[in-house]
Every structure is written in structure tokens, then in C-alpha cells.
Write a protein that binds this DNA or RNA. Structure first.
Length: 853
RNA sequence: GCGGGCGUGAUGGAAUGGUAGACAUAAGAGACUUAAAAUCUCUGGGCCUUUGUGCCGUGCGGGUUCGAGUCCCGCCGCCCGCACCA
């Protein structure tokens, strides 16, 4: 019997699809379109199992939708700008562009081996001048619309390497290469006004009904709408120009419990004090060393410094509060100053206890009026509490009522105003790096900051750059900066900042609708193909990428590059889990683990050993495949050994798509065995005579319809693992069936159609072997006859007091009364009733019966 | 620290609030074979002086319900994000 040889079969069908241009998308207003998109990869050079899983999921959807009659757009591109190319340049002396394009060539070749139904004619890389030139045009339009502007912002500065560091390059407050303590430095940088859209981006989340609830919730919390009170504390004595400290609080009702006023180390008041107070200046400098990430600030030890200044309480001129600088207060949020209410905020309480500041209760629990000791009393805003001393006369009220009353009281009295605040900050897009999209502006001594003329776009990155000096090579380039002012023509300098790579990925979905256009988009194409009907990617992009893309689509709409209907570019979103693997390590001479790749390790009954030396190997936790832990399986090896269909089948089976999947060698082996089994069945069926066996034929036809129904349901609901399980079941049924040859042939043809989205090459081979017409990739998805799904009798479980005690076989349509009679006559039921009267008899038709005594 | 999620046999997992463990893997037994591989068949959560339509069992502790893996409250553990990794 001929063995199925993936190495021969797979390229054959890939060529057949190419030749027939099966996956080339053409705009056709007479057909309903379906746009499926997976988050495009960074071209690291090798695809990994996460890619295989991500792109197979998208491919299953694309192939299924194609089979159900949609005009499918399924494109692929490269998120090709970013740090790794510069790191490679520094470490290996390669040119970032050359390195990137080589990686793209390598990865494209690997992806093509997977047999994905991609329209490669639309391929793009964000580092193509053809792409980023259009991005520059949009940047200029955004400047014109007031959506892009410059302001000062802090960056991580490495004082030894004299360069700006990304957050991931700051390890324990030190530069990753130099090891020098990182400083915060202010630079003038470009920003997008995403915060103007805070309310809009928040409200529109309600319309994203096909997004995971958790992602919408994460975005909602990120945008962070709050209602609070803004007011000022008067300083008892002015400090220079400053006589007040303005604060924003979401709990103004706790004002009578204020213990101190806290300001950010970057607050103007703190800065004005630094000149005369070396200790205070040292404290602020220390705070500024922490790095800029919020996680760093929040997890650091909470520290404060008493400025010695005092402010007056707005409700009691005799009440003075100390002003402290605190390292956990962010200048970017609210006013950069707060009042601390230790009795009702754990962080403020810890801070107050640490520095001996007063703790004043403002309310207590209704049933327990004990004062706060080491645990702050922080009830939900909906809980009613007893007020001790409320200036607006509250006695018993819940937190939300108290906040509303307080804001009204302050507004009426004229010392404060209700303010709606958002946590969302404007999007800083400047990067002091080479390998990114140049910001297309020119600095002119006379005209200031001037956008480049559109006819001069793209502002191309120079190719002749060196990385022997730290910092941005664009700054060191001998000629690239020199240009003429677009306004007055005098010599001027190009902006050397490039754009955040999140900008590149904020509109590629739109560019795919017209990837070769000489404008960012083409109206007819955008109108037809947008929005993305199904977007698929990692949960790690739940907030930033997806929020930026939502903003950018709005900005593109305002600047005329997308229709209004495309401001929510992703109609449905699916977030898939990671591919994980066990980790393996031997112990190094210094006692630290030396990570080992799975193919270096042999697993034996007595434990894992290193194949080469027999040295024992520690089997570690199952974690995301990563180069640093070496727990990677190279898809290319798997494809080489078993073929693409096996890899695709494995990543679709077992684990639900939204959860992590563990790659195991036995799982891959099992996937391969199953596909071989299907092929053996096919060969058998192809050789069988065409006899009939009425009863078995009907049973197999019914099983076929059930399989179609259930596999379809699985795909529709993104439960590919369940579709796979049903296909296993169907295969078992088919293998055991006594049906005649003709019936089996019909069943196997349907099997190949159902398998086509997951294992397209094998499916074609089955289809053609059994005489299917044309390509199975172009065959119409099989229809279900509902009549074939109906079973007339069923097993009905019977519980007594909630425990399963018996079962009866009944017709599905049997009336309740008859079921009840049968149940009460059942021997097992009678035994458990033991003569006790039946209190209640619950019959859930078609489900279960519960007898309660 | 804050925000979000997840937790079911040896393993991956299945289960509109209704028979917990579908389907698959590891393992064990058997068939075929000179033998092995491949293939096929069976067993496959735990417990037992009662082998019984027995008892226990979905991270831990409570609760709601005729009935909870599923809903609610409180813990524990792991994962993702935290604005310059992509």
C-alpha cells in the first residue's frame, strides 16, 4: 500500500493552488467579501510554533469562509522595523536593512511550506519605502489636522552609552549593555493626540460585540475614565511664584481625613525647591533614577521626603497639612499632586505609618465603628457607611453618594470643580533610533518645524550607516540631515527621530486593501474590503496595539484616508494562546542552569539525559517557547519530518485556541499517525467495490451529517480542538462502518472537505484520489440536512436528591407525564426512595430527571 | 503594586446550571509477526475487610440551587499587560 508522502504531495498542491490563483483576492462588488487577518510577524528569520498556530487558525477561517462562498482577502506582511535589526547591526556588524530583508526571504520560504491560503501578491514590509513613505504622508496630514504635536517627555537615558534606552533595555535600573544607572532625561518629542479620543475610544468599545469581553475590559481600564474633584490647597507661605498646590482626587468625600499633600518628584514645586535644598534634590534625583515604567514605580519601595512646606485645609483655615514629595506620584496623571487619606487608602496608610503622619477616620462600617489601625478601611463605593464628620452634613450614605454630594458642595462653595479625567496619555511616537520610519519634518532656523513637501516623500533612510558610535546613526550620518527648508529653501536639518513601530502596525490592515497604491489607501478598495472581519493575534496586544490601531483608523478617517465605516477596523477579534514546551537544563560549572534544546535531550524511564554525553537533565516547567530558554521546536524540522499538514493538525488539536498549547513530540507523532490512517482508509475505499448495505449506509450518512454539523460549529465558534475531536470520531465511525463502497466514498469525500481547512494538502490528495471534481480548496462546503441529525430515542439519566441513580431509555418526544410515570416505576428509583414520599419531581425534557425526597 | 485571565485523570482537554472525564496522548494487556516496527482489540480518576447502579473526586475554604467544573464571596498558584520589546 502506498504510504502518504507529504514531502512530495505538499509542494505539488501548493503549485496547483498558485497556478489556479486560488487565493488571489480581487475586488468584486457582486460578491460578499470576508477579510481575515492575523497579526503580522516580526521577521526574526525563523518561524516558530506560535506563528504556525496563529497562521493556521487564520487559514482555517479563510479556507472555510472561501468554501462557504465569500470573496476572501487573506494577506501577509512584515512588521519589519524595530530594535532587533539594530542590535544585530551592533553585534554582528550587518546592515539592518540587509539583515531584515534576508530574514524576510527566509521566513517567507518557511511560511510558504505551510500551505497557507495567503494572497502573496499583496505582501508588504513596513520598512519598504513604498509603505513608510505613505505613512509619512499621513503624518504630515495629521500635523495639519492638529493630531501630531511636540512636547517634552522623559526617556531612559544611558549616561555611558549616551543613548536612549527602551524599557526592556533597563534591567534593575541599569543600562543592559553599559550597566550604568539609568537617568531620566527630558527631550522634545512628537506625540499623537490620542487623549482627545479618550471618551470616544471608551464609548465605542460597547459596539465591539465580537471582541473578547476581557480585552474590552482591559481597554476600558486602560483608558481609565474617572470623575473627581479638582481644587487647590493654598500654601501657608508662597514658594517663589507658586502659592497653591492643585490636586485631583476621585475620593473628595474623604477630604476630612486628609493627612498630607503629596507631589510628584517632577512637580514644578519640587523642582523649585531643589535649588536651595540639597537633601531634597538628592531625593528627587534618586526618584528619577527609577526608570520610566509604571511597573517599576509601583513596585518600588514607597518613599517620601518632607518639603517642610505647609498648606491650609480648604475647609478649615486653622488646619495645616505637610507637603511631601512621594516617589509613587506620577506627574503624567491628574495634576501630579494628591492629598493622602490614610484611613481609606492602604498605600497612603503605609506611607503615613512609615513617616509618622496623622491618620483620621472619616467614616466607619455601619456595624463596626472601630478606628483604622494597620489596615485601611476601603469599602466598595456602593457600600453604605457611617460618617463621622462630613462637612456637607452626611450621616449615613454610600461612597458614590458622598462623592456626588461633595462635588456639588465644593462647586457651590466655589473652591473646587467636578472634573472627568482619563488615565490615557498622549501617544509618544518619537524614537531616537535609525531603523524606523523617519518623521518627515525639517528644522529651519527661520521657519521652525516645517513638514516635508509631499512630493519629496518618501524621506528615505540612508543605507550607508554605521553603528560604531552609540546613539542614533542618523545623527552621525555625514549628509543625510542636510536638506533645504520646504518653506523658504534655506539650508535646514532633517528631524532624526523615527516613529514608534506601533505606528507601522496601526494601519497595515488598511494598506493591504491597496498595497501598491501611490496614496496611503484607495477609497474604492478600502470601502469594499474594510473592515477586517476576523482579526487574530496574541493577547499580549490586547491594549497598546489594538488601542493605537483604533485611534489611527479614526485619524485616517479625519484626514481622508479611510471611510467613516472603518473607524473600528477590527469587527471580530480572537486572541490565541501561546505554544509552550518543557524546559531542559543541565547544571553549568558555576551552578547556574545551562539550557538545552529538546532535540539535545533523550527522555528515558529513569529521567531525561543529554543525548551526547548521558549527563542528567533537569526537566523544568512548561513555558512559552523562547530562544533564551531554548525550549523551541523548529517548525521547519517538523515539516521536514512529517509535513506541514501534521504540524497544522497538531496545533489545531487538543488545546482550545485561546489557551496555551504544549508542544510534545508524542503529540506530533500522533497527529502524523492519524493522517496516515486517513490515507490508508482512502486507499482502501478507492479500491472497494460499490456494493450497498442499506442500514449501514444510512447510519454512515447520518454520521456524516452529524460530523459536518459539529465540525462546522467548531470552526464557527473558534473551537478548532472540538472540530478535530469530531473528525477523529468521524474517522473511527467510518473505519468501523459496514457501509458499502459507494457510501464510504461519499463519506470520505466529505471528510476531505471537512479536513481541508486544517490539512489542505492531504485533503486535495483524498479528493482527487476519490474522484472529486476540481480542487477541494474550491469546493463548496457540504450542507447539513437537519432531518439526518435527529435521533428518536435517548438515554435519560435519573437522579435522586441530585445523585445519579438510574437511567431510562425513552423517545425524545415522550410527554412529561409519561416520563414521570416511568421514573416512579423504576426499580432503582424505588430502592433509593425507600418508601419516602416524593417532595418534588423535576423533569428537564431531553436532559435529566431529578427526584427529590 | 495595579489591571486582565486561567486552574478538571499520569498528560492535553470535553461538558446551553442537568450522566464529570467526549476525543487524543502516555502506560498496561492481548492479537498479528521468527522478532521488531507498523497496525488492530481491550483496560485506562481515586478508594475498599462490604466490588456495591458503594463512597470520594473539577486548586483551597465558604455560599446560592432540586442539581455547581459552570453562578456568588474569600484565599492560593500560574500566565499576560503596565505606555520605548514586538
Amino acid at each position: 500500500m502506498s504510504r502518504y508522502n507529504a514531502r512530495v504531495v505538499e509542494p505539488k498542491w501548493q503549485q496547483a493552488w498558485d497556478k489556479a490563483e486560488v487565493f488571489t483576492a480581487k475586488r468584486d462588488p457582486d460578491r460578499e467579501k470576508y477579510y481575515v487577518l492575523e497579526m503580522f510577524p516580526y521577521p526574526s528569520g525563523r518561524i516558530h510554533m506560535g506563528h504556525v498556530r496563529n497562521y493556521t487558525m487564520g487559514d482555517v477561517v479563510a479556507r472555510y469562509k472561501n468554501a462557504t462562498g465569500f470573496n476572501v482577502l487573506h494577506p501577509m506582511g512584515w512588521d519589519a522595523f524595530g530594535l532587533p535589526a539594530e542590535n544585530a547591526a551592533i553585534e554582528k556588524g550587518v546592515n539592518p536593512g540587509a539583515w531584515t530583508y534576508q530574514n524576510i526571504d527566509d521566513m517567507r520560504a518557511q511560511l510558504k511550506m505551510l500551505g497557507l491560503s495567503l494572497d502573496w501578491s499583496r505582501e508588504l514590509a513596513v520598512c519598504d519605502a513604498e509603505y513608510y513613505g505613505q505613512q509619512q504622508a499621513m503624518f504630515i496630514d495629521m500635523m495639519g489636522a492638529g493630531l501630531a504635536y511636540r512636547k517634552n517627555a522623559v526617556v531612559n537615558w544611558d549616561p555611558v552609552d549616551m543613548t536612549v534606552l527602551a524599557n526592556e533595555q533597563v534591567i534593575d535600573g541599569k543600562g543592559w549593555r553599559s550597566g550604568a544607572p539609568v537617568e531620566r532625561r527630558e527631550l522634545t518629542q512628537w506625540f499623537f493626540r490620542i487623549s482627545d479620543f479618550s471618551g470616544e475610544l471608551l464609548d465605542a468599545l460597547d459596539g465591539l460585540t465580537e471582541w473578547p469581553e476581557k480585552v474590552r475590559l482591559m481597554q476600558q481600564n486602560w483608558i481609565g475614565k474617572s470623575r473627581g474633584l479638582q481644587f487647590s490647597f493654598d500654601l501657608t507661605a508662597p514658594q517663589g511664584e507658586i502659592s497653591q498646590v492643585e490636586v485631583y482626587t476621585t475620593r473628595p468625600d474623604t477630604l476630612m481625613g486628609a493627612g498630607f499633600v503629596g507631589i510628584s518628584p517632577d512637580h514644578p514645586l519640587a523642582k523649585s525647591l531643589e535649588a536651595d535644598n540639597p537633601d531634597l534634590a538628592a531625593f528627587c534625583t534618586d526618584c528619577r533614577r527609577m526608570g520610566t515604567s509604571e511597573a517599576d514605580l509601583e513596585t518600588a519601595e514607597k518613599k517620601g521626603f518632607d518639603t517642610g512646606l505647609r498648606v491650609k485645609h480648604p475647609l478649615d483655615p486653622d488646619w495645616e497639612l505637610p507637603v511631601w514629595i512621594a516617589n509613587f506620584i506620577l506627574m503624567d496623571y491628574g495634576t501630579g499632586a494628591i492629598f493622602g487619606c490614610p484611613a481609606h487608602d492602604q498605600r497612603d496608610l503605609d506611607f503615613s505609618r512609615k513617616y509618622g503622619l496623622p491618620v483620621v477616620d472619616t467614616f466607619t462600617a455601619l456595624e463596626n465603628g472601630a478606628p483604622v489601625t494597620d489596615l485601611a478601611f476601603v469599602p466598595p463605593k456602593t457600600e453604605t457607611v457611617q460618617w463621622i464628620n462630613h462637612f456637607a452634613g452626611l450621616d449615613v450614605a454610600n461612597g458614590q453618594e458622598a462623592i456626588d454630594v461633595t462635588i456639588r458642595f465644593a462647586e457651590a462653595a466655589g473652591w473646587g470643580r467636578g472634573v472627568t479625567n482619563y488615565r490615557l496619555r498622549d501617544w509618544g511616537v518619537s524614537r531616537q533610533r535609525y531603523w524606523g520610519c523617519p518623521i518627515p519634518v525639517v528644522h529651519c532656523d527661520d521657519c521652525g518645524v516645517v513638514p516635508e513637501k509631499k512630493e519629496n516623500l518618501p524621506v528615505e533612510l540612508p543605507k550607508d550607516v554605521t553603528f560604531d558610535k552609540p546613539g542614533n546613526p542618523l545623527d552621525w550620518h555625514p549628509t543625510w540631515r542636510d536638506t533645504a527648508c520646504p518653506k523658504c529653501g534655506k539650508p535646514a536639518r532633517r528631524e532624526t527621530d523615527t516613529m514608534d513601530t506601533f505606528v507601522d502596525s496601526s494601519w497595515y490592515y488598511a494598506r493591504f486593501t491597496a498595497p501598491r497604491a501611490t496614496s496611503p489607501t484607495i477609497a474604492e478598495d478600502a470601502e469594499y474590503w474594510m473592515n477586517v472581519d476576523q482579526y487574530i493575534g496574541g493577547i499580549e496586544h490586547a491594549i497598546l496595539h489594538l488601542l493605537y490601531a483604533r485611534f489611527f483608523a479614526r485619524a485616517m478617517n479625519l484626514t481622508g484616508h479611510l471611510p467613516k465605516s472603518a473607524i473600528e477596523p477590527f469587527k471580530a477579534l480572537f486572541t490565541q494562546g501561546m505554544v509552550t514546551h518543557e524546559t531542559y537544563a543541565t547544571s553549568g560549572s558555576d551552578g547556574r542552569p545551562v539550557w538545552r534544546t529538546p532535540d539535545e535531550v533523550d527522555k528515558t524511564d529513569s529521567g531525561a539525559v543529554l543525548r551526547a554525553t548521558g549527563e542528567p537533565v533537569e526537566v523544568g516547567p512548561i513555558i512559552k517557547m523562547s530562544k533564551s530558554k531554548k525550549n523551541v521546536v523548529d517548525p521547519a524540522d517538523i515539516i521536514d519530518q512529517y509535513g506541514a499538514d501534521t504540524a497544522r493538525w497538531f496545533v489545531m488539536s487538543d488545546s482550545p485556541p485561546e489557551r496555551d498549547v504544549e508542544w510534545t513530540a508524542s503529540g506530533a507523532e500522533a497527529a502524523w499517525k492519524h493522517l496516515q490512517r486517513i490515507w490508508r482508509l482512502t486507499v482502501e475505499i478507492a479500491a472497494a467495490d460499490t456494493s450497498e448495505n442499506a442500514a449501514a449506509d444510512l447510519a454512515l450518512a447520518k454520521a456524516t451529517h452529524r460530523a459536518v454539523h459539529e465540525v462546522t460549529q467548531g470552526i464557527e465558534k473558534f473551537a478548532f480542538n472540538k472540530s478535530v475531536a469530531k473528525l477523529y470520531e468521524f474517522a473511527n465511525t467510518l473505519a468501523k462502518s459496514d457501509a458499502g463502497g459507494a457510501a464510504k466514498r461519499r463519506a470520505m469525500l466529505v471528510m476531505s472537505q471537512l479536513m481541508q481547512p486544517m490539512t489542505p494538502h492531504l485533503a486535495e490528495e483524498i479528493w482527487t484520489t476519490l474522484g472529486g471534481e476540481g480542487l477541494v480548496a474550491q469546493a463548496r462546503w457540504p450542507e447539513v440536512d437537519p432531518a439526518m441529525l435527529v435521533d428518536d430515542s435517548m438515554t435519560l439519566p435519573i437522579q435522586v436528591n441530585g445523585k445519579r441513580r438510574s437511567e431510562i431509555t425513552v423517545s425524545k418526544t415522550m410527554p412529561k407525564e409519561e416520563v414521570e410515570k416511568l421514573v416512579l416505576a423504576d426499580q432503582a428509583v424505588l430502592k433509593y426512595l425507600a418508601g419516602q414520599p416524593v417532595k418534588k419531581l423535576i423533569v428537564v425534557p431531553g436532559r435529566i430527571v431529578n427526584v427529590v425526597v
